[in-house]
Design a protein around this nucleic acid. Structure first.
Lengths: 119, 119, 119, 119
DNA sequence: GTGGTCTAGACCACG
DNA sequence: GTGGTCTAGACCACC
């Protein structure tokens, strides 16, 4: 699991970290129940402040993606809470709106979605 | 075209404004070439500062969604610049990752996409 | 002498007008002493407000490019006041700075300058 | 790197700032990768509002001249995006037209260009 | 400590 | 009347 950060990006570092871990879980690069690196280790590897890693882990925990305790460190949750579709709908709506306006066809989005889903 | 702002949200007001206008265009609530309210008018209606509206309009202009003409104020562009799919793919990737982890089926996403496109 | 205006441009219409007339003089499309259209005529042709044309003419007069009187209307000056190079230096400086930074070679600028000058 | 602002000028302060920084880069007063002052510091030094500095930095960032990193503030870009010559040609055209009309010789412009490039 | 956002209110340039 | 600029001062997110 390689973490690539873009310090020039407008997306905060802790969110980039969170995003990559979420994608890693979806793509099975991180298995359910698998241990994540310690904050210090990941901070060292990525060349960032441990506080930043900690913040990413806090967010992931609050969202139910990971569990954390002092004894076992951070792990990918065994069962990830299903918050339903609603929380994602608004984001999809905006993204699809942008795609539609830019003239991207329904088919090309659909096939992309499918390919992502089957990964 | 009703603008609903959430002042508790982490998303800056000027971006919320930008997002709603983009969605409005995609849903044909705003026609191509249609005039947008003046910055002062929209500011007054939404209960925010004119500079905040101005910033949203600047962003939309920079992205090619609207044009600003000293004579006629702001309008939805007649032709919206096509930046291609690539710029959106990363966002889709993350969103689909989240949906997949949460156990949302491909079909439910696909039907949502369809409903947005038929609008 | 065709005037092409871009109402989407950030450059004010009266300045676009001024610029095109200056370029017209330099390229001998407008001869020294030649009459310019009346403000009303030019405004009508270009589809703009006569006040805007008037402002462009005022600027050109103040700069010494044209003369205006009630009897003969606006004409290109017979002798154009030489304000010296200094007033233009700052503008050149900025433009050359931008060119240099963008990696445009000294030679390509020089040949462009020459071609423009010999026109 | 001294910033001199003219508050009587028609050129907005944030653009004067932008122009001086661009010239500073071209003249190697600002090295590639060099840190720029913080918005607050520069605002204080120049006696203007931090938001005005911020706007100048935003423009420079959008043009690719500088990068802004949450960790290290603003820096001159290591590699500046090359937009090509075309975007500058129109500006050169106007400037040369003015110089030509005023009777400034090709040689004096050429030598000025040379002196700028050798800097 | 850094930049990002927002406000309230002012003045100006443009058409 | 339109958007553009600027200020003074505030609060927040990020690192």
């Amino acid at each position: 699991m390689i973490i690539a950060l873009d310090f020039q990006s407008d997306v905060p570092v802790y969110l980039q970290l969170r995003h990559q871990i979420v994608i890693g879980i979806a793509e099975n690069k991180l298995q359910l129940g698998e241990s994540l690196p310690t904050t210090r280790q990941l901070a060292k590897d990525a060349g960032i402040n441990p506080m930043t890693v900690s913040k990413a882990y806090q967010v992931l925990k609050a969202e139910g993606y990971i569990t954390m305790d002092r004894r076992h460190g951070a792990k990918v949750s065994q069962e990830i809470r299903n918050n339903g579709f609603d929380t994602l709908k608004e984001s999809f709506k905006l993204l699809i709106a942008e795609a539609k306006i830019k003239g991207i066809s329904y088919e090309s989005i659909q096939s992309y979605l499918k390919s992502m889903y089957e990964q």
